[in-house]
Design a binder for these strands. Structure first.
Length: 455
DNA sequence: TTGGGG
């Protein structure tokens, strides 16, 4: 390519036809991954770019550099990259762009909201030119009305996650925090309920090996929980080895984001998402179609009578009878974040643990019931106590140990015969929230089950 | 050269 061609930018469509040729390109980054080490000595970062001539599915750009620092550090999907002297290559029938560190150069610019034409990062060989501004301006104008066609990609709702799956998610980041020294966690929400997780067959001793109330080592403060949506699961997400610092500065609390390839696991009976080196971030403007769908479904859910009932609870399943038939249901997150310490609620939840759980231990030496149940719904877990006359109502008096055992097995979802995992059934509960010490009302808050009878 | 996916 002679100097005279240096000003010539090809449209992506035309570049695709110029296999093995050196070209100049400028495009919008619709997807990018974090830097990785190659099997050689270099680092690589892959991007996917589009322009007006090729708005879908985008073309892959592989950028090599001798250090991580020299790779493009994309701030946000939707930013613009200018690529000079890159080579069009075919691989498995697909054309992609290869950035060669010996002669290629790049410049990164803010996307459609950019106010100036100064790149925020350039490679060492990049030479700015007066004409660059015109191309950036044109792309930004085109971007304003551009809606990414997701094509065959398959974004899941949180209610569709399965253990071991790698899924694409379109979620709101409701919080990011350091949960332990140098261990950060991201909290994602899309308004749907993650499926209930089967529990270990064996009922653990909840005293020596308690079932945790949350995945993070320390429970989140109530004033933070008050900022979370009270309906729908909040998925905890962590980072694969070495990925944390790469991802943290790309994620912002309060923003919707599309992740491609998030690993879904189960840990301690909770769903856990993991961002790996294969995870990619995809362009997610404020008016994104996938986001609009999620917001609309959530608003529909909130206005429906069943809105606070877990998605996975069949309407006819009913193992408890509760007083207050006409009171609306709330979620356990509503219970946790209610504005008063003293209050009454009606919830649908399942019992994931009991302390004690053996039928012969459910009553104190004085003969009164005293049990701590761990209740779970798609939003959170809480401890709820079942005491005295509330226990008497719950168990229909003081039945024999054999009958009590059957009742507890039903409540805890213990399989009668085989070693099947435990699947506690959904049940309705009346809950009251109260304090133990008036001087420390919030600090001494507890929950009790009342007005509830096991069938 | 490397990776292009998971």
């Amino acid at each position: 390519m002679g100097d005279s061609d240096d000003y010539k930018f090809l449209q992506i469509r035309d570049a695709i036809a110029a296999v093995n040729q050196k070209v100049n390109l400028i495009g919008v980054i619709i997807e990018f991954g974090v830097p990785k080490k190659t099997r050689g000595t270099d680092w690589i970062c892959t991007l996917k770019i589009v322009d007006e001539s090729h708005p879908k599915p985008g073309i892959s750009v592989n950028i090599f550099a001798e250090s991580m620092e020299k790779l493009p550090h994309v701030v946000s999907a939707g930013d613009i990259i200018q690529l000079s002297h890159v080579v069009m290559k075919t691989h498995c029938g697909e054309v992609n762009v290869v950035f060669n560190k010996r002669f290629s150069s790049f410049a990164l610019y803010e996307g459609k909201d950019g106010k100036d034409f100064l790149p925020y990062q350039v490679s060492s060989k990049f030479r700015p030119r007066d004409l660059d501004k015109k191309f950036i301006e044109g792309l930004r104008k085109w971007l304003v009305d551009f809606q990414l066609d997701e094509g065959l990609s398959n974004f899941s709702f949180l209610r569709e996650i399965k253990e071991g799956d790698r899924i694409d998610l379109a979620c709101k980041i409701v919080h990011i925090c350091e949960v332990a020294k140098d261990e950060w966690m991201v909290f994602l929400w899309d308004g749907t309920d993650a499926p209930p997780i089967s529990l270990p067959t064996k009922l653990e001793d909840d005293l020596s090996n308690p079932v945790p109330l949350q995945l993070e080592p320390v429970a989140l403060q109530r004033d933070l929980l008050c900022t979370f949506p009270a309906v729908g699961t909040i998925l905890r997400v962590i980072f694969d080895q070495g990925m944390q610092n790469q991802y943290l500065h790309l994620l912002h609390s309060g923003k919707w984001v599309k992740f491609v390839n998030v690993l879904c696991e189960v840990k301690s009976g909770f769903w856990l998402g993991i961002l790996t080196s294969f995870t990619k971030l995809r362009y997610t403007p404020n008016d994104d179609q996938l986001i609009s769908v999620r917001q609309r479904l959530y608003n529909e859910r909130l206005s429906s009578e069943r809105g606070c009932i877990p998605y996975w609870c069949f309407p006819w399943s009913r193992i408890t009878e509760v007083d207050y038939d006409d009171v609306p249901f709330v979620t356990l997150m509503d219970v946790l974040t209610y504005s008063e310490v003293t209050a009454k609620f009606k919830c649908v939840a399942r019992v994931v643990a009991a302390l004690p759980w053996q039928a012969e231990d459910l009553r104190s030496p004085l003969g009164t019931y005293r049990i701590r149940l761990t209740l779970e719904d798609p939003t959170t877990r809480i401890h709820a106590l079942l005491y005295g006359e509330d226990g008497e109502k719950f168990f229909d008096g003081y039945p024999s140990t054999d009958v009590l055992r059957l009742k507890m097995n039903k409540l805890l979802g213990v399989a009668v015969s085989d070693n099947a995992p435990r699947t506690p059934p959904w049940a309705q509960f009346c809950l009251k929230s109260y304090y133990l010490s008036k001087n420390e009302a919030w600090g001494s808050r507890q929950y009790r089950i009342f007005g509830t009878k096991l069938e």
